[in-house]
Design a protein around this nucleic acid. Sequence first.
DNA 1: ACCCTCATGTAACTTGTTACATGATTGA
DNA 2: TCAATCATGTAACAAGTTACATGAGGGT
Lengths: 176, 176
Amino acid sequence: MRVLKYAILGLLNRHPMTGYDISKEFDRDLMNFWHAKHSQIYPELKRLTEEGLIKYEVQISGEVLEKKVYSITKEGITDLAQWLLIAEELEPTPKDVFRLRMYFSENMNQNQLKALIKDQYEKRFAKYQFLKQRLDEYSHEPLIGSVEFGDYMVLLSAIMRENAYLDWLKICLSKL
Amino acid sequence: MRVLKYAILGLLNRHPMTGYDISKEFDRDLMNFWHAKHSQIYPELKRLTEEGLIKYEVQISGEVLEKKVYSITKEGITDLAQWLLIAEELEPTPKDVFRLRMYFSENMNQNQLKALIKDQYEKRFAKYQFLKQRLDEYSHEPLIGSVEFGDYMVLLSAIMRENAYLDWLKICLSKL
DNA sequence: ACCCTCATGTAACTTGTTACATGATTGA
DNA sequence: TCAATCATGTAACAAGTTACATGAGGGT
């Protein structure tokens, strides 16, 4: 399926950037639904270049440092546009180690279970607050069609997801 | 981290079963937070046996057919019990291809976007209903400490997750 | 007879992580 | 001058998927 390919094409379709920039994007906004380390990104950029979907220009930063600024080609744009419209089957439910532990909770005593759930709650709550703050930075809801619309909607979905997780953890705690 | 190892240990800790049985479990209840194909399960069972965490007895089914019924060892139980109590850092957010498409929605027109979201809504709703039905089969909420408690809570979390996803999709549609 | 489920495995490949490796730029 | 960040890559490994391969059991 090569999803990383399309994540990169989508980013380069917004504006040209370096592998390093792409890596930073994965650590910020995209973090809420996709991720890749630089060790995966650089080989993929090489491959996409060979496939003619992207190209790069070398820029000199400072005196010597060369950086490759990648941009999407016509072929890349076409490929991306086609991929975006595919209505696939639902993916298998994402894996979740914490839920796995809960599933086997019969092997813990109540204090252990409580400590585990509380710890998870605190960590999730911190994440929720962090995301909420990001959303609050928008002065108004972006319009459909704008680049910001996607950013905003996906951030909103991340917040709703965390909120549902917190609700569930609260119910778990109430049973103890 | 070897999570598959602990998923298998947790299942065998409930009662002995074959690799095929484990595979079936992954297709049912565990589906909501973990999954593995038989091609991954059989090698892992072999490895766990070598490590002394599980063992098996060969049973004859019918006339000839041999099946390996695995059970957990004392060492396996200890290992599992220790692992369950680990309060790890939050995992990176699960990957989600649909959200990735939404993030790049600036490349679609409104009709295309609407069709994509509606399709996703229908598929998610069917899944939600399926899970809800499973939950309704419980005549009463299982008590903490029971094996069913874990099953029930994790099913509930899956329903709440799908519900949050549906709410988000409804908001997406309302913006169009 | 035929088909579905039970039952167990391996091989090749893709995807993703951790560690190794190097060096320039910028601001305090 | 020192540390954080910018910048690019490779190697070894772990995890997961798809395809290959085989055959028995049970019900119609």
